[in-house]
Structures are given as structure tokens and as C-alpha cells.
Design a protein around this nucleic acid. Structure first.
Length: 557
DNA sequence: ATAGGGTTAG
């Protein structure tokens, strides 16, 4: 017996004209005219298709104009309109608009309506509207539709409401790969890299096969944590399972490798990609930059000046804060303090962004220009009086200049404002698990072993000629604390742990949330010789590759 | 008459 299938009816000639026109405005206008002239001006099906195409063609005004001519828009028309508008970021707001018109017209929404309108809320980060719509979902009985649930998880995740994202996620009975991906990316995008990886492990335990979207988030989490071996595992999995390296996935891999300090692997991936766009190129270039292969480090000041000029002259773009910061950093590093300062005054005469002044201040500190430093710090404190980092660097500058009275004043004003220095920490991945250390941390299960080993190591460093550099420690600390703090800075603890736990020949990779201090920088150079290991430290701004007693940053950072 | 879904990089 053959099964009876519903016969597939051919499209009407007019409908075919619409299909042929596609999302091209001038053709759509012609077909629209044809529709009206041939008396189909009230055909909902034709108007629906026309609306979708007008929207896809990018004209929201034409879309609205057509919408207003539809006699009685039905659920399908509203839904398709909401879906079309949800596809473009620019039109998300109209998605909400048409949804509210739908509700006001008493037209019943479907589960398809909700997936689209929720996506628009997510793109708009419209959490309040999202909550209301979530209520509507429940009222209309779609609370257990897996597509709607996945959209809700993504909505809450994007809006930073992880509690509700997880609540919805936990209620999903049969979790699709997209539901898992939404929750994992929710954690990742909100800075919870460890949780993202934890959920990924759970997903694997449950036998769910990850896909490229899963890996994009997981790689992002690896990049965040500097989790090199997990990142390599993901890469092997991708290759082993023959997953296609599309631009997004490829760029995620590049990003992971470069943020783990391995530019050559990043480059291998880049070279193997079939398609590359601006994002991929930018990821690769910035990888070279942060790892010390760019103008500011190589001292290619003329090249840098020329590139900056080309932003306007060749590319017709307006330089942004990030470009200004780079210029000031590059000039400052090269010792051209005056040029850097004039650059700021000329390029950004009013209210330069704090990041630009911070770069200037760093340059003043590096080249010990205390007068200019104090002047810059004054502007910076006026712009951001609540940021403790500015007070710390200013007090460091005064200390370097030997003006302890000023150090005292800065310190007191910090105390008065109840500002505290951001807590520094370092992480290191061992056996695909990330271990976190903070200064003087004794919470680790192998604390005694680690401290003992570190003391021994520092002793050997001293024998080899290492002298502690105490001026980089916070000046608000008491003398005794200072010595302790210096000896047990988080990166030193993490390195000691790494040396204890990994075999010879394996590079040690550390991620630090703040800038590295001068003392640690000097100590690690000695450690790299004594332990005969390559040590790679990623600090807040850039990479330091220590090998045989020297660092890739050439002591400028 | 006919038509559709949620996740992913700097």
C-alpha cells in the first residue's frame, strides 16, 4: 500500500512573481502594483509574502505601509512579520511593536510568535518586556515548548539574569543541543567561564553531542581562563570529528590560542581557514600585538604614526578611544612623553577618556617623569574619583619620586573614600582544571608544599642575584605585610604550583587579572633560568614570555 | 491555495 501524501499545489503566478523578485525593493514595488491592478490587493497570503520580502529588503517604512493596507491581519501574518523583523538587529524594536499590535487586536499568538519576539527582546536586552512576554507564554500554554524555552534561556542569559536562565533551563524535559548551547553561552558571556565549562562537562556526561556553537562558547571560556589543554582538546575534537571550520569557529580557535599565548598555533588555524573576514583578521593581528610582535614593542614609532594617519586618510574612519590609547602607549613607551602629551591635547582637546590618560600616566611612571605624571593623575582623578587603580598608580609615582608626604595624602584620600585596591589573582590550568591563587592565599589543599617549594625557589633566585623590588607593592601596606605580600604574590604561588605539578619541558601558563608588578617580573626571569622552563604570563594588558632569563616584552610593559 | 522556530567570534 502506498501512503497518500497531500498533493503539493503549485504557487499562483502572482506568488511566483514575488518569489522571483526576492528582497529587492524596486522589483517588489512593481509586483505590488501588479497585485493591486489585478485585484489581489486584499489577498492575505500575497500580502504576507510581500511584507516579509519588503522587510528582508531592509525597508521598514515600506513594510509598515503595506501592513496598514491589510484588512484583517491573521495570526500567521503577524507572526511572519514579527519573525522577519526579529532577523535584523535594526528592526528588533518593530518586532515588539507588531507583537503589541497583535495582542491589542486580540489575535492569538502561536509558539512560533514567541520564539521570534523573545529573540528580539534578547537582542534589545529588553529584560522587562521579556518577563512580560514570558508571562504571556505561560498564559497561552507554551511553557513547555522546547523552542520557546531555548529562546527564553538565551533571553535571560543575554540580559545577565542567569538565575532565571537556569530556572527555565532546568525545567526543559528534553534538552536540545540549542538549549544547552544557550545556557553555556549565557554563563560564558557573563564572565562565568568555569560554570560554562562545568555545564559543558555535564552535557558530555549525558551523552549529548556538542556542535560548533557549543565549541564557540567553550573556546571563549578557555580563552578567558587561559585553559590551554582544554582548548587543545576541543581543537582535536573538531578535527577528529570532521567539523567544518567556519569563520566563527575558526576565529574562536584563533582567539583561544592567542589568549593562551600560543601565536604560532593561532596562525596555523588562521592559515587553514577557507574563509576569513575582518573579525578573523583582527583577531590574528591583535594576537601578534598583545604577544609583543607589534609597533609599540618593536619600537616602530614611525610605522605607528603612519598607520594612525592612514585610519583617516586611507580608510576614512574616525579614530576611536582604542586607537588613541595605542598611540599614547606607543609614544610613551618610546620615551616621547612630550609628543604623547601633545597628541592628547591636539587629538582630544576636551575630556579625553580615562583609558587614554591611564596610558599617559603609565608612560610617566615608566620614564620617571613625576611632574607630568602628577599633572595627568590630577585630570584622571577629576574624571574618575571612584577608581582605586588611579590612586594606586599615583601613590606609586610619588613613592618613586621619594615624596612620601604626597604618598600619605593620596593614601588618606583613598581611605576617606573607602576605596580599596582591586584584589589580584592568578590562575593556572593543570589536568584541564583551573586553579586560582590570590596573594598570600592559603586555601589550596596543598598549601604547605607550595609555600615550601616557593621559599626554596626564591632562595635560589637570591643566590643567583635576584634583588626584591619593593616599590611596586601597595604603599598603604605596613612594612611587614609588604615583605610578605611581595614574596607571595599570586603569580608566584601559581608558578610554584605549576612547577610542582607539571612535567619538565611543559611551558607554565599563568593568567593574571591585573598588571604584573616589577618585582614579579624580575623574579620570574630568574625562575625561568633556575627551573629551566618557559613561563608565559598573560596579564591584564599583554603577554610576557619568559625564557632563559629574559622576557618577550624586553622589560617595557 | 500557500507559507515558518530557538544557540555561535573581536
Amino acid at each position: 500500500m502506498e501512503t497518500k501524501q497531500a498533493p503539493k499545489l503549485p504557487h499562483s503566478p502572482t506568488y511566483n512573481l514575488l518569489l522571483q523578485a526576492g528582497p529587492r525593493l524596486y522589483l517588489l514595488h512593481q509586483v505590488h502594483a501588479h497585485i493591486i491592478v489585478s485585484g489581489y490587493g486584499r489577498s492575505r497570503s500575497l500580502l504576507t509574502k510581500l511584507l516579509n520580502l519588503a522587510c528582508a529588503a531592509g525597508s521598514i517604512s515600506y513594510t509598515r505601509q503595506i501592513f496598514l493596507t491589510v484588512p484583517n491581519p491573521d495570526s500567521f501574518l503577524f507572526t511572519s512579520l514579527i519573525k522577519s523583523t526579529s532577523k535584523s538587529h535594526n528592526f528588533s524594536i518593530y518586532s515588539l511593536y507588531f507583537y503589541s499590535r497583535m495582542v491589542l487586536s486580540n489575535v492569538l499568538p502561536s509558539n512560533y510568535t514567541f520564539t521570534s519576539v523573545i529573540k528580539s527582546c534578547a537582542d534589545l536586552l529588553a529584560l522587562k518586556h521579556g518577563r512580560v512576554i514570558h508571562g504571556n507564554v505561560l498564559v497561552h500554554g507554551f511553557g513547555l515548548d522546547v523552542y520557546v524555552q531555548a529562546a527564553l534561556v538565551a533571553l535571560y542569559g543575554k540580559c545577565g539574569d542567569l538565575i532565571n536562565a537556569r530556572k527555565v533551563f532546568d525545567k526543559i524535559r528534553d534538552r536540545s543541543i540549542v538549549a544547552w548551547n544557550s545556557m553555556i553561552s549565557g554563563y560564558e558571556q557573563n564572565g562565568f567561564a568555569v560554570e560554562a565549562i562545568g555545564l559543558f562537562d555535564r552535557m558530555k556526561e549525558m551523552g549529548v553531542e556538542p556542535d560548533s556553537a557549543t565549541f564557540v562558547s567553550v573556546l571563549s571560556a578557555c580563552a578567558h581562563l587561559g585553559a590551554f589543554s582544554l582548548g587543545c582538546w576541543v581543537h582535536e575534537y573538531i578535527v577528529g570529528n570532521g567539523l567544518y571550520l567556519n569563520v566563527v569557529l575558526g576565529t574562536s580557535l584563533i582567539n583561544m590560542y592567542k589568549r593562551c599565548g600560543n601565536v604560532s598555533k593561532a596562525r596555523e588555524v588562521f592559515d587553514s581557514m577557507k574563509e576569513r573576514n575582518v573579525v578573523a583578521w583582527t583577531a590574528m593581528i591583535s594576537g601578534y600585538g598583545t604577544n609583543g610582535h607589534a609597533c609599540a614593542h618593536a619600537g616602530l614609532v614611525n610605522e605607528g604614526r603612519r598607520l594612525f594617519a592612514s585610519i583617516r586618510e586611507e580608510y576614512r574612519l574616525v579614530p576611536g578611544v582604542e586607537h588613541h590609547v595605542c598611540m599614547v602607549d606607543m609614544l610613551g613607551r618610546a620615551g616621547l612623553l612630550e609628543e604623547a602629551y601633545n597628541f592628547i591635547k591636539e587629538e582630544i582637546p576636551e575630556n579625553p577618556a580615562p583609558a587614554i590618560l591611564t596610558a599617559m600616566l603609565g608612560a610617566c611612571k615608566m620614564h620617571k617623569n613625576f611632574d607630568l605624571g602628577a599633572q595627568v593623575a590630577g585630570h584622571l582623578l577629576a574624571a574618575e574619583p571612584e577608581n582605586p587603580a588611579h590612586y594606586v598608580i599615583l601613590s606609586n609615582i610619588y613613592a618613586l619620586a621619594g615624596r612620601m608626604d604626597q604618598v600619605e595624602i593620596v593614601r588618606n584620600s583613598m581611605i576617606r573614600k573607602r576605596l580599596r585596591k582591586q584584589v589580584g589573582y592568578s590562575t593556572i590550568e593543570v589536568d584541564q582544571k583551573t586553579n586560582l591563587f590570590s596573594m598570600g592565599d592559603k586555601s589550596h589543599s596543598e598549601t604547605n608544599e607550595i609555600y615550601h617549594y616557593l621559599d626554596e625557589l626564591m632562595w635560589k633566585c637570591r643566590e643567583a642575584g635576584y634583588v626584591p623590588v619593593s616599590d611596586s607593592v601597595m604603599h598603604e601596606l605596613e612594612e611587614e605585610e609588604r615583605e610578605f605580600a611581595l614574596r607571595y604574590h599570586s603569580e608566584k604561588l601559581a608558578i610554584a604550583f605549576g612547577l610542582l605539578k607539571t612535567s619538565h619541558g611543559t611551558p607554565i601558563r599563568i593568567v593574571k587579572n591585573l598588571r604584573m608588578c616589577e618585582d614579579c617580573h624580575s623574579a620570574i626571569k630568574f625562575i625561568s633560568v633556575i627551573s629551566n622552563r618557559e613561563i608565559i604570563v598573560r596579564d591584564k594588558l599583554r603577554f610576557h614570555h619568559f625564557k632563559a632569563g629574559s622576557c618577550s616584552c624586553l622589560d617595557y610593559w
